[in-house]
Write a protein that binds this DNA or RNA. Structure first.
Length: 533
RNA sequence: GGGCCUGUAGCUCAGUCAGGUAGAGCGUCGGACUUUUAAUCCGAUGGUCGCGGGUUCGAACCCCGUCAGGCCCGCCA
C-alpha cells in the first residue's frame, strides 16, 4: 500500500469526516522543501478521498508570526520591524527595502512570498483552502481557545515544562501581546481579565491587549494546538523538527486536550536537501524555489519526487542528472499497466507490494486528481537531445513523427519541451547531457578503440568528405564506411563517437553533424586518423 | 546528557507494523536489432540485510546491546 493510503486508512478508523492541514511561515522565499509539506498533505487528502472519506485540505499561512531577524535579502530598514507580524509589515522591494507604496495598497511581507508559492501550487495541482493566520486572530477565530489557554495558564505551563523538559520564565503567559510599537518582543504581561491582557513593554509603556481582537498571538506551542481546535484538524504532516520527543507536537497533543479538542493524526516527514549542499537554507543561498523548479521540471515529475519516497526518507534533490533519471523513471512508470500486473497470481507478497507502491506513486503524481498518466513515448534524454539539435519546436515534432513516436504533440509534451529548453539554457543543465563536438582529437578516447575501429577512421573521413551534407547521407555514410572494410557498422559508430565526441557512444550523430561545418568535421577525422598512425 | 529517524545489491530504495526460500528499478556485462547506437528487446551479473548477543523449529523483521550518519530538546515551524 502506498504511504498516503496507509495514512488514509488510519484516518478511516477515526471517522468519516477529516480536515488535513499544513502550515508554513512566509518569512522568506519558499523552496522545494516547503513543497514536501504541502504535497504530503495533498496526497493524504487525495488518498482519503479515494477511500471514500469526506476530506478537506487546508493550508495555514502563518502571517501572525513575527519577523525574527533582518535576513540577508532585507535592507537595514527592516531592523525596525523585528518582532512585528509578517502580515502587518511592508514587503521588500527589489533592493530589499520596505515597499511603502504597495503596503498602503495592502500588499504585505507575507503576501510577497506567498503569492508566487500559490501560483506554483496551482500549477502542481494543489488547491487547498487558504487560512491567513493573522486574519484569523483579528476576526476572533482564536478567541474562545485563547481564553481557555489564559484561564488555564498553569496547566499549560506545567505541560510544556514537563514534556519539553525546559523551564519557562517566571512571567511567562500564554498570550504574546503586541507592544506600543506593534512588536511581540520584550513585552511583559502584568495582568489578565478576559478579554484584556495588561502589559508593560520595552519602551516603558503600559497598555492592554484584547485577545478577542487578536491584538497579539498565542506562543507557537499553543498557537498550533489552538489551530487544530478551531479549524477541526484531524491530520497534519509536519517536519521532523516538530516530531522529536519534547518537540511541539508532543506538547501540542496534550495542550489541545486542555483546550477541549483531540490531537490530529501526525505524520513526520524528512527534509529535502540539495545534493552535496546539505539542507536547504535561504541564507546559504542554496535554495531552489518551486517556481524555478517548475521552469525546468514538469509538475507531475516534481510530484513523483515526493510521492515515491516514504515521508521518513530524506530526499536528495538536484537539478542535474538525478532529474534526468527521475524523469525517465516517470516515463517508465507511466508506461506500465498496473491492473494486469496485479492480476498475476504468481506475484510474491513482496513483489505485489512493489507493484502497488509504484501504482500508488503514479496516482499521487498526477496533477489532475484521478487522471491516469499517459506515457509520452519520449524520454527526457531523447527530448534533451532533440531540443539541443533542433532549433525550432516544429523540427522536434517532425523528428518524433518521423520516428513514429507521436502523431501530434500533446499539450504536456509541448510544455515539456518548453521546460527542456529553459533547463538547457540554465546553469542547472548537466554537462554530461550537453552535446558537443570536439575541436581537437581526444587521445584517450582514441586509445580505447580496437584495431578494427581505428582502421575505419580513414575510410570514415573520406566517406564524410564525399557525402552530401545532410542528415540522411551522413547517416548512411557512417555505417557504410565500416562495411567498405568488411566490418560491422558498430566499428564505424565507435570510431565516429570516439573521434568526434570523445565518447564510446552517444546520440545520433547524423542530424547533429548536418548542423555543423563539413570541412571542420573532416579535418577533425583526418587529424584523428593521423594521430593513430 | 535525553529522545527520534536512518543503515538491505555498485546506486536509489521496497520488504520490518501482522517472523516463513533476500526483492525491484537503475547501473554493469553479454546478445539481438545490417543505419532512430544516450533508443528498443532479450539474457546474465550482483547482498556476512551496519555489527554483537538473545527469543524462536525458523529473524532483515521481535528483544537487549553496540557502531555510524542525520535531526530535535532555544519565544523555536
Amino acid at each position: 500500500m502506498h504511504w498516503a493510503d496507509v495514512a488514509a486508512k488510519a484516518l478511516s478508523h477515526k471517522g468519516d469526516k477529516h480536515i488535513v492541514s499544513t502550515g508554513i511561515t512566509p518569512s522568506g522565499e519558499f523552496h522545494i522543501g516547503h513543497l514536501r509539506e504541502i504535497l504530503t498533505g495533498d496526497m493524504i487528502a487525495r488518498a482519503a478521498r479515494n477511500a471514500g472519506l469526506d476530506v478537506e485540505f487546508v493550508f495555514v499561512v502563518d502571517t501572525a508570526d513575527p519577523l525574527r531577524k533582518v535576513y540577508e535579502f532585507l535592507g537595514p530598514e527592516y531592523e525596525q520591524f523585528i518582532g512585528h507580524q509578517l502580515g502587518s509589515i511592508p514587503a521588500p522591494d527589489a533592493d530589499g527595502n520596505p515597499d511603502w507604496k504597495r503596503f498602503e495598497e495592502g500588499w504585505t511581507y507575507g503576501d510577497h512570498f506567498l503569492k508566487p508559492f500559490l501560483e506554483a501550487l496551482e500549477q502542481i495541482g494543489v488547491r487547498p483552502r487558504i487560512i491567513d493566520n493573522l486574519e484569523s486572530y483579528q476576526s476572533g477565530k482564536f478567541d474562545a481557545l485563547a481564553k481557555i489557554a489564559c484561564d488555564r495558564a498553569d496547566e499549560i505551563r506545567e505541560a510544556i515544562e514537563r514534556i519539553s523538559g525546559r523551564e519557562l520564565a517566571e512571567d511567562w503567559f500564554p498570550w504574546s501581546p503586541l507592544d506600543s510599537k506593534g512588536s511581540l518582543d520584550g513585552v511583559k504581561v502584568t495582568g489578565y481579565e478576559y478579554p484584556l491582557v495588561h502589559w508593560h513593554d520595552s519602551h516603558g509603556v503600559d497598555g492592554t491587549s484584547d485577545i478577542s481582537k487578536g491584538e497579539g498571538k498565542l506562543p507557537w506551542r499553543i498557537d498550533w494546538p489552538a489551530k487544530w481546535g478551531w479549524i477541526g484538524v484531524t491530520c497534519e504532516p509536519f517536519g521532523k523538527d516538530h516530531g522529536a520527543a519534547g518537540g511541539s507536537y508532543a506538547t501540542g497533543r496534550e495542550i489541545v486536550q486542555i483546550l477541549g479538542h483531540e490531537a490530529p493524526h501526525p505524520l513526520t516527514y524528512e527534509w529535502i536537501s540539495l545534493k552535496g549542499q546539505g539542507a536547504m537554507s535561504s541564507s546559504a543561498g542554496n535554495t531552489i524555489g518551486p517556481i524555478e523548479a517548475l521552469e525546468l521540471v514538469p509538475p507531475e515529475i516534481l510530484r513523483l519526487l515526493v510521492a515515491k519516497s516514504k515521508p521518513n526518507k530524506a530526499i536528495e534533490f538536484d537539478t542535474g542528472m538525478s532529474l534526468v533519471n527521475l524523469a525517465d523513471e516517470y516515463e517508465r512508470l507511466a508506461a506500465r499497466d498496473y491492473t494486469s500486473e496485479l492480476a498475476n497470481e504468481e506475484l510474491s507478497r513482496r513483489q505485489r507490494v512493489q507493484v502497488e507502491d509504484a501504482a500508488g506513486a503514479m496516482r499521487m503524481a498526477a496533477v489532475e486528481e484521478g487522471k491516469v498518466a499517459q506515457a509520452t513515448a519520449v524520454t527526457f534524454r531523447h527530448l534533451a537531445l532533440l531540443a539541443q539539435t533542433k532549433t525550432t519546436d516544429d523540427a522536434v515534432w517532425d523528428s518524433l513523427r518521423h520516428a513514429g513516436a507521436i502523431e501530434q504533440p500533446t499539450q504536456s509534451l509541448i510544455d515539456r519541451l518548453t521546460r527542456m529548453r529553459a533547463w538547457i539554457d540554465s546553469k542547472h543543465f548537466p554537462l554530461e547531457m550537453k552535446i558537443s563536438i570536439l575541436d581537437a582529437p581526444n587521445h584517450s578516447a582514441l586509445a580505447e578503440l580496437n584495431d578494427d575501429e581505428r582502421s575505419v577512421l580513414n575510410s570514415l573521413a573520406k566517406a564524410l568528405e564525399d557525402c552530401e551534407w545532410n542528415a540522411t547521407s551522413i547517416g548512411a555514410a557512417i555505417p557504410q564506411s565500416a562495411k567498405n572494410m568488411e566490418l560491422s557498422p558498430k566499428a564505424g559508430y565507435r570510431a565516429a563517437y570516439a573521434a568526434l565526441m570523445g565518447k564510446e557512444r552517444g546520440p545520433r550523430l547524423a542530424p547533429i553533424l548536418a548542423e555543423m561545418d563539413q570541412k571542420k568535421i573532416v579535418e577533425l577525422l583526418n587529424a584523428c586518423a593521423e594521430h593513430i598512425n
